[in-house]
Design a protein around this nucleic acid. Structure first.
Length: 513
RNA sequence: GAGGCUGUAGCUCAGUCGGUAGAGCAACGGACUUUUAAUCCGUAGGUCUGGGGUUCGAGCCCCCACAGCCUCACCA
């Protein structure tokens, strides 16, 4: 170990303000160095997760109980343990110090007695602040009041914190600080770490389920010359050597379908897409999307897969199929409800979906602008305004008007209906799936028609000729599925906003100085 | 992009009618070998988000800017 005896910057101001809170910590850091100890720590092997240490409670042998009245300590012996963690609470009582340390598996109390640890360790313990990382060797036992405690025999200093942690019980409350300083939020806010670990379990479960179904994960390009596969504004960037403008991808679809043509019969990508749109409790400009394609399947195949993916993900988080959502409860027992678009339209508006004058009148009464719009577009605006919010689900909405689905195969015998479903839960679109369109001539025609309508508004949209060329080589009939992972995680972790399930959501940069 | 709400000590929050800026936690000094939101005694800590205005006087009223949250729009 190297002894470092450099002078820390100090301030002459009296104690209390933010600079002097730091100065007090730097003074302790200096004292730690004076003791010949590196305040930034060293490798620390063979410590057990605190959760595992707590699980060894049963190994404690009680020889005689303590007595609060006489102050006689209990005679109990437990296993020798080694732990590492962050100091989150500290109570000093004369020549005893009670500390609570926390790691990512749990929290446990430490008892440091002056006599028990010796002069050097005691001097080191005088330099502890809330937020410091320490290691401890000691005996796992219980205090007189029965609290599971590591009775310290030896202390190790692992890292100094020179910043003051937030209020010890309330933690960080300001939503802006919680997002900007997610590291503090993870340490000090109830349930935050667990929620993000659940997110990881959900994503792992999805990969496991797909692997068990023999799907192959691939990595498509995120830089696209043409941003296709969805109707959204892309972010633009530039490649210097080629001197071309590029777009960050807005969807995974068109490259995965090329791979379907290439013979990768069951293929998926789980990755980030970017849309240059507004921010809301349900939208972040970058979000995680799963897209799955299965040759020789259709949207019915994808419906079964969707149920399997979600049910397995719920199991992976250790929850039952009845999940809390705020004050209410959701039931993910399979099969999920299946209702057609037209059924739901009638149910929620009282107007039959094929009643053209009726739908138009209803839209007008809702204050929607109907002038010059295709009836299916009007119908869908009504559906989005009046039906979607009320779908608490989970419910599969089946069979959409074909004219609003440019990438979807039409129903055999009814070209006005597209074989598409969307899964709605709590008014949110969580999944979207098609029987994929594989007719290159029809695909080209639908793209052209779509581009006409968008020309002025969305000059980014361009015909992807290479995608059409790929289809011309023969794409198998297939089912395709997209799932918004962030929204699924919201639902499975009872999180009302997307920012609670994205570690670092987009924020405006902090002002300088 | 539009509207509403919010911004006070490191953190969490009070601040009355416009009249000298408050508390708890954290910090500093002291007491305490079984505490657990430890307790007790004492000390210190403020560009009231920033800028301008009204006023004898502004944390408070008005205007502008910045940031966050909510609703809407775009979108999944």
């Amino acid at each position: 170990m190297t002894l470092i005896a450099m002078t820390e910057p100090s301030t002459d101001k009296p104690s209390g303000g933010s600079e002097t809170l730091e100065a007090a910590r730097r003074e302790k850091l200096r004292k730690i160095r004076q003791l010949g100890i590196d305040p930034w720590g060293q490798r620390f092997d063979n410590h057990a997760p605190i959760g595992e240490i707590r699980a060894r409670e049963g190994e404690i042998v009680v020889e005689s109980a303590g007595d609060c009245a006489t102050g006689r300590p209990p005679q109990a012996h437990g296993p020798e343990v080694r732990a590492a963690g962050r100091i989150v609470l500290q109570r000093k009582a004369g020549k005893l110090i009670f500390l609570d340390i926390r790691d990512w598996t749990g929290q446990i109390q430490l008892l440091i007695g002056k006599k028990q640890v010796g002069e050097e360790n005691w001097a080191l313990a005088q330099c502890f602040d809330l937020g410091d990382l320490i290691g401890v060797d000691g005996e796992l036992s219980r205090t007189r009041t029965g609290e599971l405690t590591i009775f310290a025999r030896d202390l190790h200093f692992l890292s100094k914190s020179i910043e003051t942690p937030p209020a010890k019980h309330k933690g960080l409350q300001d939503p802006e600080l919680r997002q900007r300083m997610r590291y503090l939020d993870l340490i000090h806010s109830e349930g935050v770490l667990g929620r993000f670990l659940h997110r990881t379990k959900i994503v792992q479960s999805i990969r496991n389920t797909l692997a068990a179904e023999r799907f192959v994960e691939v990595e498509g390009p995120t830089l696209h010359a043409i941003a296709g596969g969805a109707a959204a504004r892309p972010f633009t960037t530039h490649h210097n050597a080629l001197d071309i403008d590029l777009f960050l991808r807005i969807a995974l679809e068109l490259h995965l379908k090329r791979l379907l043509v290439g013979g990768i019969e069951r293929v998926y990508e789980l990755g980030r897409v970017y849309r240059n749109e507004g921010i809301s409790p349900r939208h972040n400009p970058e979000f995680t999307m799963l897209e799955v394609y299965q040759a020789y399947g259709d949207y019915g195949t994808m419906m079964e897969l969707t149920e399997k993916l979600i049910v397995e993900a719920i199991r992976a988080t250790g929850q039952s199929l009845k999940l809390p959502w705020g004050e209410s409860e959701m039931d993910f027992s399979t099969p999920f409800a299946r209702k057609t678009y037209d059924e739901l339209f009638l149910e929620h508006t009282g107007v039959a979906a094929d009643d053209v004058p009726g739908v138009t009148q209803y839209a007008y009464d809702c204050g929607l602008d109907t002038a010059g719009k295709h009836i299916d577009v009007i119908k869908n605006e009504v559906f989005e305004a009046k039906v979607e919010d009320r779908l608490t689900g989970p419910v599969f909405v089946l069979d959409y008007p074909a004219s609003i689905c440019p990438l979807t195969k039409r129903k055999a015998g009814n070209p006005a209906i597209a074989e598409r479903f969307e899964l709605f839960i709590q008014g949110m679109e969580v999944a979207n799936a098609y029987t994929e369109l594989n007719d290159p001539d029809l695909q080209e025609e639908l793209f052209s028609r779509q581009l006409e309508g968008l020309a002025a508004e969305d000059s980014m949209a361009r015909m992807d000729h290479d995608f059409i060329r790929a289809l011309r080589h023969g794409m198998p009939p297939a089912g395709g599925l997209g799932i918004g992972i962030d929204r699924l995680v919201m639902l499975l972790t009872d999180s009302p906003t997307i920012r609670e399930v994205i570690l670092f959501p987009l924020l405006r940069p902090e002002a300088e100085g």
